[in-house]
Nucleic acid binder design. Structure first.
Lengths: 143, 143
DNA sequence: GTATCTGCAAACTCTTTGCAAAAAC
DNA sequence: GTTTTTGCAAAGAGTTTGCAGATAC
């Protein structure tokens, strides 16, 4: 699932939403930023560079909307603010190593959980839609 | 690691904290409540039944303190409020199935991750202190 | 032209903090 | 007696909402 302007436009129109310059710029921020896990305030700061009059409320509303359309994925690293990144797939995200000292977030991929899921689903009568695995500890800079 | 009044008392005294009636009652709430994942407001509601004049700030401060002493473990289920439960072990907590419809939280145990950890530590130069695994989906009531 | 979207300010929720009085030891 | 702890009220952070004007199509 690769998101470009056209696929997002389509998703918006499918649900009677419009493509506004604000939404376009917010989307651009995510394609261009090298930091992946952006908070609303982060996004706002970057959007204002090309669109200074944008409101923070618009950023929040847009991030919400994009999360609803499965364009962005909302995460929580326990620091009291939501973080957003592009949805990797329809189903599962990758996982995160979170440094308790400096707060840095590293990603890693793993398929081990997939095989666990069907077992857990059966045992608990629970339909799994997504999973989230986080390791907390100290990164190589903070040893 | 089983926490009773005496072990907690010891932990408090070890760090020059005092055992107050408020702290005693808050601890009791966790031993007596059948719902395990309590928010500060939850705890406050239950504490007030036996100690009506307690302040919410005291509850927050006590939960913080207990988390620092590894008596309680603070969690986050993505609903914008912190949740607390007894620490299961010095190292790792169990994991959670979170229903996206009704918000119910079920627990499950699994040791599969333990074997993953040393591999991840080596590959990423990351010292893992704790991990957190959550499955989001629909519980048996909400199918 | 009409429904959606925006910016602003105000409201809201959860949590933290400053302070003087109270309590633990 | 000293230090920690408490309750209160006020402040703080992050997020949401109501509304009138603006914009996409």
């Amino acid at each position: 699932m690769k998101h470009n302007l056209d696929t997002v436009k389509q998703k918006l129109y499918d649900k009677d939403h419009k493509l506004t310059p604000q939404r376009r710029v917010i989307l651009e921020v995510f394609t261009k930023s090298k930091e992946k896990h952006l908070s609303a305030e982060d996004v706002w700061g970057m959007v204002k560079k090309t669109y200074p009059e944008v409101g923070l409320a618009t950023v929040y509303r847009t991030l919400d909307l994009f999360a609803e359309l499965d364009v962005l994925h909302k995460m929580d690293f326990g620091d009291g603010r939501g973080r957003y990144e592009f949805c990797e797939s329809e189903v599962h995200q990758h996982h995160h190593l979170i440094c308790l000292n400096c707060g840095s977030v590293t990603e890693f991929e793993d398929d081990l959980l997939e095989c666990l899921e069907s077992e857990i689903e059966k045992k608990n009568h629970f339909k799994i839609l997504n999973h989230e695995l986080k390791f907390y500890g100290h990164c190589n800079k903070c040893h």
